[in-house]
Design a protein around this nucleic acid. Sequence first.
RNA 1: GCGACCGUGGCGGAAUGGCAGACGCGCCUGGCUUAGGACCAGGUGGGGAAACCCGUGGGGGUUCGAGUCCCUCCGGUCGCACCA
Length: 893
Amino acid sequence: MTTKGDTESTGQDNGHGGRSRIERYEPAAIEPKWQQRWADLRLYDTDLDDRSKPRYYLLTMYPYPSGSLHIGHWYIITPTDAIARYRRMHGDNVFLPIGFDAFGLPAENAAIKNNINPRDWTMANIETMRGQLRSMGATFAWDAEVVTCDPDYYRWNQWLFLRFLEKGLAYRSVSAVDWCPNDGTLAREQVEGTDRRCWRCGAQVEKRELPQWYLGITNYADDLLDFGGIDWPDPVRIMQTNWIGRSSGAEIVFETAPSPHHAGGEELRVFTTRPDTLFGATFMVLAPEHPLVAALTAPERKAEVDAYVAQSAAKTEIDRLSTDRDKTGVPIGADAINPVNGARIPIFIADYVLGTYGTGAIMAVPAHDERDFAFAQKFGLPIVRVVMPRGADPDAPLTEAFVEKAADFAPAGPPEHHGLLGGILDEVDLLTRGRTATEQIVMVNSGEFTGRPAAEAWHQIVSSLEEQGKGRQAVTYRLRDWLISRQRYWGTPIPVIHCEQCGAVPVPERDLPVLLPETVDYQGSGDNPLARDEAFLNVPCPQCGAAARRETDTMDTFIDSSWYWFRYLSPHKSDGPVDIDKVRDWTPVDQYTGGAEHAVMHLLYSRFFTKAMQDLGLVHEAEPFRRLFNQGQILGADGERMSKSRGNVQDPDELVARYGADAVRLFLMFMGPWDQGGPWSPTGIGGVGKFLNRIWAITLDPHGREPGDPSGGVLPEGETEEVARHRMHAAAHRTLRDVTADYEDFRWNTMVAKLMELSNLLSRYRGTPAAGRREWDEAVELLLLMLAPAAPHITEELWARRLEARGEAWESIHVQRWPELDERALAEATREVPIQVNGKLRDKVTVPSDTSERKLEKIVLEREKVVAAMGGRKPARIIHAGGGRLVNIVLED
RNA sequence: GCGACCGUGGCGGAAUGGCAGACGCGCCUGGCUUAGGACCAGGUGGGGAAACCCGUGGGGGUUCGAGUCCCUCCGGUCGCACCA
């Protein structure tokens, strides 16, 4: 690379022993120049009203302004920028906006630590990062920039919240949050490890019941399972499907039995996906926090039950869910009645049953559920087998739960998280497997249902319960409503006022935005500084005018990112969050790029917001992003996540200073497939540097030669100038064909490799009589055009110099049309055919391209090596692989 | 445990079921140089003097033909994790 001597040789020696006729490639001398020029010409501002060209909304996940860009940002942004440039060369009106995800904890923590204002910290970081983003040569539409901590942005978070509130999509409810005794409430990600400790002080985090604000994402659960019309990677769709966790089954009503202390007759509802196993329910388990626990507990059990409830309340959810934990629980001294056979079964509480899922109560069928089995074994409870493979011995003792179920006999519906993931398995395969299993699993010990296939009984039992009013088909989701309250300063204030008379009153729209106070005491004792800011807190109730207090919770910052791409279209609109006409013209986003770590949270919230905003009449679309691409993650050289604390962060500015932005861009694209990422290693960046030097040399100095080139000035052995010219023409167009396909599919590594091949070929002809001829010129031009989206600066510079040399007026390479493919150039006069005998490669023969199969067979069978390989045996048949790519002679046995 | 993805030279990685290892790094040889961590040319999967043989995590299968498709085992990465 050119860089090494930069400091030592101070440019007086050009590194080529003083022989070269051209100055060397100095990225530092050309890159800022062109960046400035592009900005001055406003080359990349998008006219959103221009309908003369097809629109292309290209979106990349906006960064958090953490302080500076790291190489991972470049890894996302570089190819995204290349897509933008490539689409423009195809005549699309490309919109590539950028902004900053500017609310969040790091700013607040930095404020506490350094005693500066979170806003100042954030805005300073944004300024730094803007400069870095410009240094990459990325073509962002800066005039559409959105900064989420700007009141002009977050007021619309508040406005949307009020609309959600009106619609019943936002509500307040009491729930448990993580609470650190020293630092107050913590976000989920601030609680570390399985022992749940505070990341700052290391104290054990506890749960606190607090009134919190929620958004009703579960209302859209089934809609969110429908991925129709969007082209997203399977892994993301699968993760979202699993996260939503739709389970269809039945809700079944058990009644409590009368006892000495109790009249009985209370209804206990359970959710099960296996109503077919109802006869095997030998006990019942309630979550410790189940509302009926206190009422049902027998007096003599009270002490023990209370102790268990207290004990599990002290535990975190993580502890409770830990799989390897032993089952614990206590009987509450009451029984329930199995509605299907009238059996009295004991009721337990146990923390393996979650209060937040289903009905917070289960019927336990130990024979057919591993967890229930373990519990029954520990507590010596009966285990009754009720389904089994046809022909099995119903009385054989079970050593483990038999959980095999008869395919999917639940009602058809959206994809669920167990088993059948929509369309991924072959349908026919599923049907046959399903049918077989369905017939093979039969009922036993189940009264009138005994002997029937379990799949039938599933439905019959549900209908029979339904008739008696003791149950119904039901669907449950793992997905819960979105808790958006954060007891933090640096976020969007939730626009609500609490009045003793009127309750929680929405802030009137005319009073928006509820501004974050500029100066607060964020140095305080760890709770939300807003809660101590009397000026902020005290307001009159908008309804009755009495003294009232503001809500002090702020919104989860995922709210900001749930609709920001709509705002890019009208960032300064002051009478509403979005411009519905622009939204109609420009969304859904054509291509979204970003990391897979947002597969569930951000991408699910964004889909929810879009659907909710559609229902509010704000937008016309049900889906935000038509196509999604998840690039891989760049890790530190040690294979770990890059982080300042690990000291494995690669500073991109340093690389740009050494190698230039184009080389860094190209190297990131060349490393490997974009969706793969991998450990960072700068070894090899010199390779793309060499490539750029070569482009520089062949463009500016076709007739030059490098010192010591032994083949310099001479065409390859046996090659005429005619042949060389034809080869250049063919190679240029073959490269164009392949590179175009690679751009379309984001295969940057092979794209760069193919351009390297073309430049290697031209380099071989440099200084020979073939150099500088028409075909040479054409190949160089194609090479520059094809490279332009990936390495925008060097190509712009060389393009300008070519124009200048030809006395033509300057026009940016980045407004040129993508070259047209000349199909005729691809045709070769001859082709080389590999010859296999019994599938093994034995020989190759070069024949005229129009050789017929029959003629080719004749030629092939006369080849010396082929005859030898055939060893006197006769061909049974001869395979011609597609289009004469290969011949395979299959011999008789 | 469940789900998804992935195993190819010393390294990053190529390869619509059809010549395995494109392209690059590194390394070797030579050239050019006062010099080179610059530049140019050639070579570089393993074994073998060669003919040739062997090679895409292991084993099986489908096929004229498998890195690619199917089954199975082993190893790795990510996500979920008592969700009834």
